[in-house]
Design a protein around this nucleic acid. Structure first.
Lengths: 212, 212
DNA sequence: AAAAAGTTTTACCATTTGGTATAATTTTAT
DNA sequence: ATAAAATTATACCAAATGGTAAAACTTTTT
């Protein structure tokens, strides 16, 4: 029996797909799904609209792929704790620092995600329940154990996470507001360092977990 | 010289305009500017598209008006402190409570604002610099005086505000995420009360301003 | 009552846009 | 080299959408 061996994707194709995905991410981030036209993405990627459609057969498919790439990146980078014995201070501090690094390095990804959530998570709803919720519940349990052990003061762990997420992502999603209010043309690495220090201190102190 | 006295707007007109603005706010909140069609707004308001255009001559005009109504509401309700001698605890606690009340009572307004900011504040940029920034700088100064007086621990006041804004607005903008993760079909008043208590305690403790 | 101003409806249109069909060209495997 | 597969370019289209023109109708003013 003869099996056709499908040609491996040319490196050119991989490169072009990445270029398209970056262009699409930027477009979706700044204009939303409806505000983004296939033609504008194609232009940004330097190809024709019809050629874009050859690579991604529909706008939905393109959007789904952009979301998937974002989630892969986030899931890969955003583990709250893989070490049961790490101290709350270590875990929270590095979590905040890494979250802020994502806001700094992938602001468009954060904005696409924000759009999706604000719009009611039409695409991600199922994924959130099936993947993010279990992870969330594990992390909540860990925080509860910290509380039970007296390592941090008692708080509602769920709201702790909502606060950390919101206050780290705001440096990506609402960066224009922060820039305008601080009189800057853009947020520099330095601004993120200050924010990381502020937030780490802030959260650790609020949790009574200053010392290690 | 004869001056035409323009007819006062009929009460019907005012009512209908409000109905349109509410419908538009909801549409812009859930679909963004580009994702919102004039026809869908008209349908929600129970009038024809052409009649909607009679009331608001363009989609831009409608969007601008929606934003203006939101800002009026926020500016009216969101004063950080009008009493120089109030204690930090009083000021911050009531600020957080009122911000959360806005997220609870006007989630669509919050989402429209979020869309606008994420998209780079194309409409609100000027307003933010001319109106919000001065107010922001006054509030920052007040916090700095608190620090100088030793009423709260030293923190960067700017980032304190970014954190409070982000973590209160997330209960409106990201409500679907919070719902899904907490296994609720919607956020109830009770959830907002818990959030208010959590955030107040959290922020006050982080600032070392627990006692009055 | 008549004029004027305000409101609603009907008919229509130009542009944008996501997408299809297909032909031409280039690249890869045998 | 050549067939097959992959890629790119050309031509086109149907639906959606923001908006215009103008007639018909209603309410208010004088």
């Amino acid at each position: 029996m003869i099996m056709k061996t499908p040609r491996k994707p040319s490196s050119n194709r991989v490169l072009l797909e990445n270029r398209i995905l970056r262009a699409a991410e930027r477009a979706f981030a700044t204009k939303g799904f409806s505000g983004t036209s296939m033609e504008s993405v194609a232009d940004s990627a330097g190809i024709s609209k019809q050629n874009l459609i050859y690579y991604f057969s529909s706008k939905e498919a393109l959007y789904h792929k952009v979301l998937q790439v974002i989630l892969d990146l986030w899931v890969e980078k955003m583990v709250f704790s893989d070490d049961e014995n790490a101290s709350p201070k270590q875990v929270i501090e590095s979590y905040i620092i890494e979250k802020l690094a994502l806001s700094r390095d992938y602001p468009d990804a954060s904005k696409v995600f924000a759009h999706e959530i604000i719009n009611g998570a039409p695409v991600l709803k199922d994924y959130m329940v099936s993947h993010l919720k279990p992870q969330f519940e594990r992390d909540v349990l860990l925080v509860k154990r910290w509380i039970a052990k007296g390592l941090i003061d008692p708080v509602e762990p769920e709201h702790l996470f909502f606060t950390i997420w919101a206050s780290t992502q705001t440096y990506a999603d609402f960066s224009i507001q922060i820039q305008l209010l601080m009189g800057k043309t853009k947020l520099e690495a330095d601004d993120f360092d200050v924010a990381a220090k502020f937030l780490s201190n802030f959260v650790l102190k609020a949790l009574g977990a200053q010392s290690d």
